[in-house]
């Protein structure tokens, strides 16, 4: 009998990937971060492959949003490494270098060009006093685009791809509904076709019908553009709908990782079983 709290051994060690032709696009190893007495992350490893959606679940305080902030280079860990495979992308990133060692300017550029993020709170991702198209164009400006007509056209395309009604592209986000604000954030995040799109509770707080529409847009973007996504959510229904693989976090550690259907149908760890069985 397995002791409570310990992942049940399957008796089989899973093999390293052999069939995957592409190498991982995002790799983190041993990421640790302490805030005062709280060990927010305790040596977390993450591997994300091109085109997949990695879901991260766990209760409040499990470290999932902290981990996402690390992926977005908003914070520096006490230990750990972070690599993005950016070879072949323009402009070329610091391939092979631990991204946590970059200076603030380098991080900002990398974040602007190669990493997209959608926050739960649109105030974190948008300038509410600018127009929606201006918010998207700002991302393009950082990447060096200075042609006004082109900026506007590319902003329009990104908004259309996010299923934002372009007739309202010059409206300020603070005049839009929550679902529309999330679409502007999404357009901003995908405008430069990032290597990875980070989604921090993107549908939390939206009513159910709007949530379904936003999830459908995300799924379509993943299917049509093969955008690699990391999705943090406490909503297991959202994770089950969206994710190919799932990481379960608790107290700053990854307690279980697997294919989404395996995590939901045959959870191994006691905590994962509690989490899955607690779903309404």
């Amino acid at each position: 009998m397995t002791a409570p709290g310990v992942a049940a051994p399957t008796g089989l060690e899973r093999q390293p990937p052999r069939l995957m032709l592409a190498r991982p696009i995002l790799t983190m190893r041993g990421v640790a971060r302490r805030y005062g007495d709280v060990q927010a992350l305790a040596g977390v490893d993450v591997t994300v492959y091109p085109g997949e959606v990695l879901g991260i679940v766990g209760e409040s305080g499990s470290g999932k949003s902290t981990l996402l902030r690390m992926m977005n280079l908003e914070d520096t860990p006490d230990a750990g490494t972070y690599h993005l495979a950016l070879a072949g992308r323009e402009p070329a990133g610091p391939d092979g270098r631990n991204l946590f060692t970059l200076d603030r300017f380098q991080r900002r550029m990398l974040r602007a060009i190669h990493i997209g993020i959608v926050y739960q709170n649109p105030h974190l991702g948008l300038r509410m006093g600018h127009t929606s198209s201006g918010n998207v164009a700002e991302r393009l400006l950082i990447a060096g685009n200075r042609n006004f007509a082109e900026l506007r056209q590319r902003a329009r395309e990104a908004l259309e791809a996010s299923e934002f009604p372009v007739a309202r592209m010059d409206a300020r986000p603070n005049t839009l509904s929550g679902g529309m604000q999330q679409r502007v954030q999404l357009a901003k995040a995908i405008a430069l076709e990032p290597a990875v799109l980070l989604l921090d509770e993107p549908t939390t707080g939206l009513d159910v019908s709007v949530q379904a529409l936003v999830l459908d847009t995300l799924k379509r973007l993943q299917r049509d553009r093969a955008i690699t996504m990391v999705l943090v959510s406490h909503d297991l229904g959202v994770i089950r709908t969206m994710a190919d693989r799932v990481m379960v976090m608790r107290c700053g550690e990854v307690v279980e990782e697997g294919l989404a259907d395996q995590i939901f149908q045959d959870p191994q760890h006691e905590y994962t079983q509690q989490l899955v069985h607690a779903k309404l």
Binding site: L12, R14, Q15, P17, R18, M20, R245, E257
Partner: peptide, 13 residues
């Protein structure tokens, strides 16, 4: 490939 022990990403493929 051994489906019992293959990496998740291989199974997904």
């Amino acid at each position: 490939i051994d489906l019992a022990a293959a990496a998740d990403v291989d199974i997904a493929v």
